[in-house]
Simulated scan of single mutants.
Amino acid sequence: MKINRNFDNLVPSYLFAEIASRTAAYVKAHPDNRLIRMGIGDVTLPLPPIAVEALRRGADELGVKETFKGYPEYEGYDFVREAVAGYYRSFGVTVAADEVFISDGAKSDTGNIGDIFGADNTVLVTDPVYPVYVDANIMAGRKIVYAPCLKENDFLAMPDKSLSPDMIYLCSPNNPTGAAYSAEQLRAWVDYANEHDAVILYDAAYEAFITDGSPRSIFAIEGARTCAIEFCSLSKTAGFTGTRCGYTVIPKELVRDGHSLRDLWYRRQATKFNGVSYPVQCAAAAVFSEEGLRQVHENLAYYQENARVISAALDEMGIYYTGGKNSPYIWLECPNGLGSWEFFDLLLNEAQVVGTPGEGFGAQGEGYLRLTSFNSRENTVEAVQRIKKLLSSSV
């Protein structure tokens, strides 16, 4: 018996596991100190009331013989897929309901999508990058090439004509940097993918945070339906991090190697996935109602204000950063030439604030740190005060 030796090529410790380990060690040594956690991008506000009501209603239906439901459809119930299609129409993008696949989240789908692609494909990812894009393809044994995101390009990598990738992972607004592509920049990527017969795997998990008119979907760009798959999630949009629900959109026009990628994904899901529970899908559909979106935007506005609090403090201290406007993430340059883990440890031990070291997102993340706006307002304000005090005393 042999194991998949591609796992030997993974970084030994997953980024967030290492953060948890260091944080736990600090708490054990200093049990009376209060930490403010601004590292992992988990939400803190409760689910919108309309989603909770729909969850209860769905659960109640499962307790009645006449409305009981067993296995859900692999691609999701029609009423949820129609709701997602209607949501796209609300910001001017046409997506058919039968191109929508309901899932347990974008993380799962961005990792699992590789099942429909050959192991000999070359994968392009931006650097810094969400670790799942890299690790899932290392596990599959694919060659990975990197497009550097740097201060010089505002952390928005553009196509490199010297590379010829088959699969291209893009995330906008980006995790971890918070930077968002403009329509013109996305058009360059779409043209590049169509020219190279490549497929863009587009993570739009943070589209609901966009405030400046940047595209909220790759399908807002002409030509994307022949080269792109889009992943989205209710985790950050509606606080479903623990509830687990997202969706993937694969256009019917998207064909490679003589095969419909939509049909291949359906076949994959039918084999390996038994769908999202009925109550959760009821809650998801409720989120996309007029009242649901109103409630969602209230929560989003709360996190966006937190981001403004963090951004204003960094502006005051003269620290370079991206994000904070179209994103719940603030990607800041570590002060005084500190490395990512050095600054992480400094904040943890001297200010009791937990961030995420940029180095954990790739080589180009060294020297940067990610903060999130998902904590409470009180904790966010206190965290920036602690950081300002620490840095003013260390200058």
Rank of each mutant, 00 (worst) to 15 (best):
D263P: 03
I221T: 08
A183H: 15
H259C: 12
E316C: 04
L170K: 06
S235D: 14
G213C: 12
E61K: 13
Y87R: 11
A147M: 10
T67I: 09
G41V: 07
V199G: 09
V395Q: 08
L391Y: 13
N299L: 02
P279V: 02
A136P: 03
A307T: 03
D78P: 07
A97C: 07
K252E: 15
Y247D: 12
S373Q: 02
D160F: 00
E305A: 10
L369V: 12
E378R: 06
A198P: 09
E333T: 05
G58R: 00
D8T: 00
Y192E: 10
D203T: 06
N379C: 09
F344Y: 14
A284I: 02
V129I: 03
A17C: 06
P31N: 00
I229K: 01
S13V: 11
D32C: 00
T126L: 06
G318K: 04
V43P: 07
S260F: 14
D60W: 08
D135M: 03
Y302W: 10
E253D: 15
P12C: 00
G258F: 02
Y302E: 03
G275M: 13
C245W: 12
G355C: 15
T67Y: 12
T271H: 12
G362F: 09
A312R: 04
F240Q: 04
L10W: 04
T177W: 10
M317V: 00
I50D: 05
C334F: 01
V123P: 03
T372S: 08
S311I: 04
A54N: 07
V100P: 02
D166Q: 12
F288S: 01
A205F: 06
E75N: 10
L338Y: 08
C232W: 12
S373W: 05
R89A: 13
E316D: 14
A25K: 07
C282G: 03
P328D: 06
G178N: 13
D191R: 10
G223D: 14
D160V: 01
G92P: 10
W341L: 04
Y133V: 09
E298N: 02
D42A: 07
K325C: 13
S340T: 00
D191K: 12
I221C: 11
E53S: 15
E99F: 13
K252C: 08
L332I: 05
T322F: 10
A363I: 10
R37Y: 14
A313I: 02
A301T: 13
L47D: 06
V11D: 10
R268E: 15
S289D: 04
S21I: 10
A17W: 11
I229L: 05
I36L: 00
Y320N: 03
G318M: 05
E222F: 01
V190L: 09
E291D: 15
G58C: 03
A301D: 15
T110K: 14
F219C: 08
R57I: 02
L348H: 01
V43K: 12
S327T: 09
F7S: 02
R57D: 14
F101I: 01
V27Q: 13
N349I: 00
Y266T: 06
A307R: 04
G86P: 07
D104Y: 01
R89C: 02
S214F: 11
D60F: 10
N153R: 06
L264G: 09
I310Y: 03
D166E: 14
G239Y: 10
V125M: 03
E222K: 07
N175G: 05
F117R: 11
P12D: 02
A180T: 15
R142M: 08
I210K: 03
D212A: 04
R37E: 15
W331A: 01
I50H: 03
Y74S: 14
